[in-house]
């Protein structure tokens, strides 16, 4: 099936990597956090890339999910899976309630409002010490287990996190390729025309905001159980910005672009460690160069480049020279 070719390729990659490098640090540790970031980026991409609504506070939903899982399992003794569901229920509700006032805003104002949301959640996490442990964090979060299969090793976390990432990618691809997905893209293209086509733009915006928040909450719960310890710092403003960077760097409005962006931004700092003091500077320079030379995003840019090269190889004889766009005008 052509529609899911990319997903099959990604699945293949995920399966082969640990077989080739079973005990490699980059596979069992870095790739796990890259997969976690990919879950977040794919959700955020639905909101930002497809619907054209920016969020600078996405880490808030990640944090609400993580803390709900952490608090509910450590303080109320609920099992992790119910805790995860509770986290998603809470996050979904908050997103639903916040969506209406926030998503009325556009552009910079929406950016400010989501930024505010992120900061408020951050402050709540720090201040409600009795519940969250405050700035010292919350520890002793139990590990996950799936029908008796304990997720207790790095490799098992790799399997679980990758599986969830593939599931989220599949869900996102399905959404984009549907009536609802077209409504999202239409909203981005022209809100007034979308309304005239019968799309209830308020409902559509709320829907995508909730879906993005739910995927962040899911990622948050997984993160809490994987780390066993969480602190407010993991859910701050800078992490929100990092998520936005992943989406933009990979290529807006491309699900695999978001996955790619998440992997690049997770692996790059790890690989740059050899530069020691200059690590952050080189990291910044690479980001700038990427955006200058591949403004449509790393994934989208490289994919188009590859396609062009393949086409040239298939047709080595030079095609008759036709000025660009001429046939197009004839057809008009």
């Amino acid at each position: 099936m052509k529609r899911l070719r990319g997903l099959f390729l990604l699945t293949l990659l995920v399966v082969i990597l640990p077989l080739l490098f079973p005990d490699n640090y980059y596979v069992t540790v870095v790739a796990v956090s890259a997969a976690l970031h990919a879950i977040l980026a794919v959700g955020l991409n639905l909101l930002m890339g497809y619907a054209g609504l920016i969020s600078l506070g996405h880490a808030a939903f990640f944090g609400i999910g993580a803390y709900t899982s952490g608090i509910v399992t450590t303080r109320f003794g609920l099992d992790p899976w119910s805790a995860m569901a509770a986290g998603m229920l809470l996050t979904g509700t908050i997103a639903f309630v916040m969506a209406r006032p926030i998503l009325r805003l556009k552009g910079h104002y929406l950016a400010m409002a989501t930024l505010g949301l992120g900061i408020i959640v951050q402050i709540v996490l720090v201040q409600t010490e009795e519940l969250t442990g405050g700035p010292d964090g919350l520890g002793g979060i139990p590990p996950l287990s799936l029908f008796g299969w304990e997720v207790d090793s790095d490799l098992r976390w790799y399997m679980l996190m990758s599986a969830v990432m593939l599931l989220v990618v599949w869900l996102a691809l399905n959404i984009i390729d549907s009536r609802s997905g077209r409504a999202l893209r239409a909203l981005h293209g022209s809100e007034v025309a979308a309304e005239m086509m019968g799309i209830d733009t308020t409902v559509t915006k709320t829907g995508v905001f909730v879906v993005a928040a739910l995927s962040a909450s899911l990622a948050g719960s997984l993160f809490a159980h994987q780390q066993a310890f969480i602190s407010p710092d993991s859910f701050n403003f800078f992490f929100s910005i990092e998520l936005v960077t992943m989406v933009v760097l990979g290529g807006m409005a491309s699900t695999f672009g978001a996955v790619f962006g998440a992997f690049v931004l997770t692996f790059l700092p790890e690989l740059l460690v050899i530069f020691e003091d200059y690590e952050v500077m080189i990291f910044g320079a690479i980001l700038m160069l990427m955006m200058i030379f591949l403004p449509q995003g790393l994934f989208v840019g490289l994919r188009d480049l590859l396609r062009r090269l393949l086409q040239q190889q298939r047709a080595p004889a030079p095609a008759p020279v036709v000025p660009a766009g001429e046939d197009k005008h004839d057809a008009a």
Binding site: L171, A172, N174, I175, S178, R179, S180, G181, R182, A183, R185, A186, A194, M197, G198, I199, G207, V208, V211
Partner: peptide
């Protein structure tokens, strides 16, 4: 896809059935 957006009202599936 542009014209399929025009068919929005003549179809009715929601976000969750689409996701699955």
């Amino acid at each position: 896809d542009n014209v399929m957006v025009g068919c929005h009202l003549r179809t009715g599936s929601g976000l969750f059935s689409a996701a699955l």
